[in-house]
Amino acid sequence: MLNIVAVLVVAVGVLCVLNTVLTLGMARRLRTQNELLANPSRFMPGNHFPPVMRVAGERTSAFSTTTVDGAPVDETFFDETSALVAAFSVGCAACEERFPEFLQFAAAFPGGRERVLALVIGAEGAEEKAELLKPVATVVVEDTHGGPLSTSLGTTAYPALGIIEPGGVVRASGTLIQDVAIALEKV
């Protein structure tokens, strides 16, 4: 009987030590993650997260596609004045979170619907998003990532937002409304 009690006491002791080691390891990982969120430049060169689309100063490439209304659209969309562009992927949690804010921002964008180009990527569920975007944007749907408009904008993550100057030159880009709104304030 004494041997069983001794074995149980040793087993509980080993479990306590293992629990302490795992807890300390988790605390260290949480501290590292907190540092990354507080100061991403320490972990990534360039003082920012990787771009979600072409960055300021880059030029969009030529493209040709069709809107959900059946109208052709190509790189000449960017010839007249500044345009707001957005790319959303169906099923993307961040896209769902930022979608209502984008709708408000696009509705107030100078030039209205004719100066806002929205891209929805996905085979299923894209029609619903496109219908919500139609009152505030010219809408293009691409079934898969890497379609003509997505390639022209250089999208790598979603949501991707940008202000495109005449000639297809990106003025600002990012994943948040603030990333592009600040470029409009500098005009």
Rank of each mutant, 00 (worst) to 15 (best):
L117N: 00
P40N: 08
S61V: 09
D69N: 15
A86T: 05
A38V: 03
A83L: 03
L36I: 05
L22N: 04
R29W: 03
C92I: 14
L37V: 13
T67Q: 06
S82R: 13
H48M: 08
R28V: 15
A123D: 14
A94M: 07
V136S: 03
L84G: 04
S64Y: 13
L153H: 04
G154N: 05
R42A: 13
F99E: 05
G70P: 00
A71R: 15
C95Y: 07
P110D: 12
A107M: 09
L30P: 01
S89Q: 08
A106M: 07
F105D: 08
G57M: 09
E80L: 15
V116R: 00
A137Q: 06
G111H: 12
P40S: 04
T60E: 01
C92H: 09
A56R: 14
E80R: 13
P100T: 11
L153C: 02
T81F: 12
V73H: 02
T67M: 11
A123C: 06
T67N: 10
R115H: 14
A107Y: 10
S152E: 11
A123P: 06
L133W: 03
F77Y: 05
T65P: 08
V139K: 00
L149A: 13
L103E: 05
T151I: 10
V55C: 13
R98C: 00
T76F: 06
G154I: 09
E142F: 07
G147C: 07
V90L: 04
A108E: 11
R54A: 07
L117H: 00
S64W: 10
A123K: 12
T67P: 02
P45D: 11
T144K: 12
S89N: 05
E127K: 14
L30E: 09
R31Q: 14
L119W: 00
T66P: 03
F49A: 10
R42Q: 12
E35V: 14
S61Q: 09
L103C: 05
P135G: 02
A83Y: 00
M26F: 14
P50W: 07
G70H: 09
T65G: 10
T66M: 03
K129P: 00
A118I: 12
V140M: 05
R31D: 15
T67H: 06
L153E: 02
F78T: 01
E96W: 04
P50H: 09
G57H: 08
F102W: 01
R42V: 08
G111S: 14
P148A: 10
L30V: 12
N47T: 10
P148H: 07
L153N: 01
Q104V: 13
E142P: 03
A108Y: 04
A27E: 11
